[in-house]
Computed example of a mutant assay.
Amino acid sequence: MKRIILLLLFVTIFLNQKETHASEILKVKLKNYIGDKEELTIQVKGRYTTMNGIEVISEEVEHILTIKKGSILLTNQNEKMSFDDSFVLIPDVYDEEHVITVNNKKYLGAMEFMIEDGKYIRPINQIPIEDYLKGVVPFEVYPSWKLETLKAQALAARTYTMTHMDKDMDDTIQYQVYGGYEWFEQASKAVEETKGEIITFDNKFHQCLLFC
């Protein structure tokens, strides 16, 4: 129930900025660059609050996340907050002026932190699909490739994403490598110029191109 509420809150925030649908918001577990950690360091740029919309996370301040007796502790020099088994940070506005950094890796969108296997803190990024793809294409192929080749990759990546929305996706090669908010101009242009387009065969998703 808590995650459903989170999704609705985040979609509401995003709808204030652009046209979208709930189905276009993707959840991605962050494993590839984070690994299995019992402690994480986070920072936020822009105003972020917890899911209740009350507790504000201080900007440009290093926060440490740790686990203690089944709860997640968020601490810095001046603050200390405790959350039962997970908590969510949501930006007031979805844009590139609201960025959350997890262990020196930047991400847009909302971020949930949950306890995994009783001892690790697992971040889960919630982000619109098109912006997710901007963090995928340059990490699945070389961002220096020609635009038309990058556009083909964007089509393949979007098709793969749409056909795996029911999976518990992460940012590793098991699904698609996702580099977060580390965008490359040419790759982003390829995503934008193919926005909403997928690969089909006989009017059905064609998921085998490049991924089978």
Score class of each variant (00 low, 15 high):
residue 81 M to G: 10
residue 209 L to A: 12
residue 96 E to N: 12
residue 10 F to R: 04
residue 165 M to H: 08
residue 138 P to V: 01
residue 78 N to D: 09
residue 91 P to K: 13
residue 140 E to P: 13
residue 199 I to W: 00
residue 54 I to Q: 12
residue 116 E to R: 14
residue 199 I to E: 10
residue 66 T to W: 06
residue 115 I to C: 05
residue 205 F to Q: 11
residue 83 F to W: 04
residue 182 E to L: 13
residue 102 V to P: 07
residue 173 I to H: 12
residue 163 T to G: 14
residue 46 G to E: 00
residue 44 V to N: 03
residue 98 H to A: 06
residue 176 Q to C: 01
residue 69 K to P: 04
residue 150 L to G: 02
residue 29 K to E: 13
residue 114 M to N: 11
residue 9 L to A: 15
residue 180 G to Q: 14
residue 106 K to W: 02
residue 91 P to H: 14
residue 177 V to N: 07
residue 123 P to I: 02
residue 205 F to V: 06
residue 15 L to F: 13
residue 7 L to P: 15
residue 205 F to C: 09
residue 207 Q to K: 15
residue 146 K to Q: 05
residue 193 E to T: 14
residue 212 C to Y: 15
residue 131 D to Y: 08
residue 113 F to N: 00
residue 34 I to V: 09
residue 6 L to N: 14
residue 142 Y to E: 12
residue 4 I to C: 08
residue 91 P to M: 08
residue 132 Y to S: 04
residue 12 T to G: 09
residue 88 V to N: 06
residue 202 D to F: 14
residue 159 T to A: 00
residue 143 P to C: 04
residue 59 E to H: 04
residue 7 L to D: 02
residue 132 Y to H: 04
residue 51 M to N: 12
residue 14 F to E: 09
residue 173 I to G: 13
residue 157 A to Y: 00
residue 70 G to C: 00
residue 80 K to V: 12
residue 1 M to G: 10
residue 69 K to N: 08
residue 107 Y to V: 03
residue 178 Y to R: 03
residue 50 T to G: 12
residue 120 Y to C: 05
residue 191 V to M: 03
residue 157 A to R: 11
residue 207 Q to M: 14
residue 58 S to K: 03
residue 190 A to G: 05
residue 42 I to N: 01
residue 199 I to G: 02
residue 46 G to N: 05
residue 5 I to R: 10
residue 77 Q to G: 15
residue 96 E to R: 13
residue 138 P to I: 04
residue 199 I to F: 01
residue 117 D to L: 09
residue 81 M to S: 13
residue 41 T to S: 15
residue 101 T to E: 03
residue 171 D to L: 07
residue 136 V to Q: 05
residue 186 Q to C: 10
residue 183 W to Y: 13
residue 194 T to P: 06
residue 37 K to L: 02
residue 85 D to L: 11
residue 8 L to C: 15
residue 165 M to Y: 04
residue 66 T to D: 02
residue 146 K to W: 03
residue 202 D to Y: 14
residue 86 S to R: 12
residue 206 H to M: 05
residue 93 V to S: 03
residue 30 L to P: 11
residue 119 K to R: 13
residue 54 I to S: 12
residue 189 K to F: 08
residue 184 F to D: 00
residue 48 Y to L: 03
residue 119 K to Q: 12
residue 5 I to C: 11
residue 110 A to G: 01
residue 152 A to P: 08
residue 4 I to S: 11
residue 107 Y to E: 00
residue 61 V to N: 03
residue 101 T to R: 07
residue 90 I to R: 07
residue 47 R to C: 07
residue 166 D to C: 04
residue 114 M to P: 10
residue 17 Q to C: 05
residue 193 E to P: 12
